[in-house]
């Protein structure tokens, strides 16, 4: 696997830590973190990661609002976004799909699997 840089946006620090550890251990990718949507958008603009893992349910600015803002900005519009969610009902998945997200990964996941799953979703 080629070296990649990811950005995770999740308000739960422990999940960020676990994701970062798993991905780094298996694939050696660099993982940047942001703990809310606003900070995530700023980091994305500044760092231009190869992909963004975005938690759907966050306080204040949720994943969908964050995604829409990322899409609306020409700097970040091209970065593929994968949603992380605890339980995606079919309607939600359809909704995500219609929004134009690249994929959805449902919690629980084993972080060791993430590089492979992300690569498959994004055809890396």
């Amino acid at each position: 696997m080629k070296n990649k840089r990811l950005l995770t946006i999740d308000d739960e620090e422990s999940i960020q830590i676990v994701i970062k550890f798993g991905i780094h251990m298996v694939a050696g990718w660099e993982v940047l973190s942001a703990s809310d949507g606003r900070m995530g958008i700023d980091t994305a603009k500044r760092e231009l990661p190869d992909a963004i893992l975005l938690d759907v349910m966050m306080p204040e600015m949720d994943g969908i609002a964050t995604f829409k803002e990322l899409q609306a900005n020409h700097i970040t519009a091209g970065i593929p976004v994968i949603f992380l969610t605890a339980k995606a009902q079919t309607a939600e998945k359809k909704q995500f799909n219609d929004l134009g997200v690249s994929g959805v990964i449902t919690k629980p996941f084993n972080s060791l699997d993430l590089p492979e799953r992300i690569s498959k979703i994004l055809n890396w």
Partner: peptide, 27 residues
């Protein structure tokens, strides 16, 4: 995207990951 079979990881990776989960879980 959720249907891919799980990749196989080495025993050592699994053990290290588990140890890390345990540590992080404490916080």
């Amino acid at each position: 995207s959720n249907d891919n079979s799980q990749p196989i990881h080495s025993h050592q990776q699994q053990t290290e990951y588990l140890a890390f989960l345990q540590e992080t879980w404490v916080q």
